[in-house]
């Protein structure tokens, strides 16, 4: 999934399922997360309001990184902040860690209220957070974007302007569900983020628009469940494709998807995964 690696890009489908590993997002301070219930399945989708529950970056560095070191694939650390400065501080703390191949700035979690708004809703804050992280590390920098904006291309451009090597999209789509008997919100946090097949068209559009306008590689995700989905995301302009919710459905789905993707690419008469990228443009 590491988009910068040219060899991987050429031959993406071969190592697709295990090309990189992104542990759950960590923050400067530990976070307990949102009150339960935190999950609700909807039509072909999953609503969640986890709220970035994590034990903080210090514990991540002390306890998790040594455990991740023997992983056979690159580890991409995902970090989020409550303010732009947090991204610089977290990036600085991870810069010297050899176990971390790249950093992903999660500016898009819909489940944490940062003065009421996810940082990634604002182009200037997105740029600033990226600049601060860029100054703190020489590692490959990915910025993960939210679809809950009017113009995602503007936000992506701000991230690239701030020094991002790559953008990843999309995070979950704002949503909610009501209890069918009480007619009250199901989630303890009232609203949550929607993932899974239900959001694929939203994600595909975002990948298409951003990759058409910008010169950095795009990691596409949002509802990818089958090899056909992966094929379409790459055709829409994704250099790499990530799988979230579908892995809950079938933990081995990415392996099956990868081998099938190879077959699909051939079937379409396309020479390599690299040639597939952006054919929809």
């Amino acid at each position: 999934m590491l988009a910068a690696d040219k060899a991987l890009e050429e031959d993406l489908f071969v190592s697709f399922p295990f090309a990189a590993y992104i542990p759950k997002t960590v923050t400067l301070k530990p976070r307990a997360g949102n009150p339960p219930p935190r999950l609700q399945e909807t039509a072909a989708g999953l609503l969640n309001s986890i709220g970035l529950a994590n034990h903080g970056i210090e514990a991540f560095i002390r306890d998790d990184l040594p455990r991740l070191e023997p992983m056979p694939v690159p580890v991409i650390a995902s970090i989020a902040g409550e303010r732009t400065e947090d991204y610089g501080r977290c990036a600085a703390m991870l810069d010297s860690r050899a176990e971390v191949a790249a950093l992903e700035l999660n500016v898009s979690c819909p489940n944490v209220e940062l003065d009421g708004r996810a940082l990634g809703l604002d182009p200037e804050k997105t740029r600033q957070a990226t600049v601060l992280a860029r100054q703190a590390t020489s590692k490959f920098l990915i910025v993960k974007l939210t679809p809950n904006v009017t113009d995602i291309v503007e936000i992506a451009a701000a991230a690239v302007d701030g020094g991002a090597d790559c953008v990843s999209l999309i995070n979950t789509v704002h949503g909610m569900a009501l209890d069918r008997f009480s007619l009250k919100p199901v989630l303890g946090h009232v609203t949550g983020g929607l993932s899974g097949p239900a959001i694929k068209p939203v994600a595909l559009r975002a990948v298409f628009l951003v990759s058409r306008e910008l010169d950095v590689p795009v990691i596409g995700m949002g509802g990818v469940t089958t090899a056909q989905d992966a094929l379409e995301f790459m055709a829409a302009g994704a250099t790499a494709v990530a799988v979230g919710t579908a892995s809950f459905r079938d933990p081995l789905v990415a392996a099956a998807m990868a081998s099938e993707l190879g077959r699909l690419i051939k079937e379409h008469g396309i020479g390599s995964a690299g040639e597939l990228i952006g054919v929809a443009h």
Binding site: K24, A32, G33, P35, P36, P37, R38, L39, Q40, E41, L46, N48, I50, A53, T245, F248
Partner: peptide, 22 residues
């Protein structure tokens, strides 16, 4: 009981309130 996604302790989706935290 709780709604679950991963079933293996990684997504933090199924938590309930415990005496000392989730």
């Amino acid at each position: 009981e709780s709604h679950m996604a991963c079933g293996i302790g990684s997504c933090q989706g199924c938590v309930i309130r415990g005496a000392g935290g989730y």
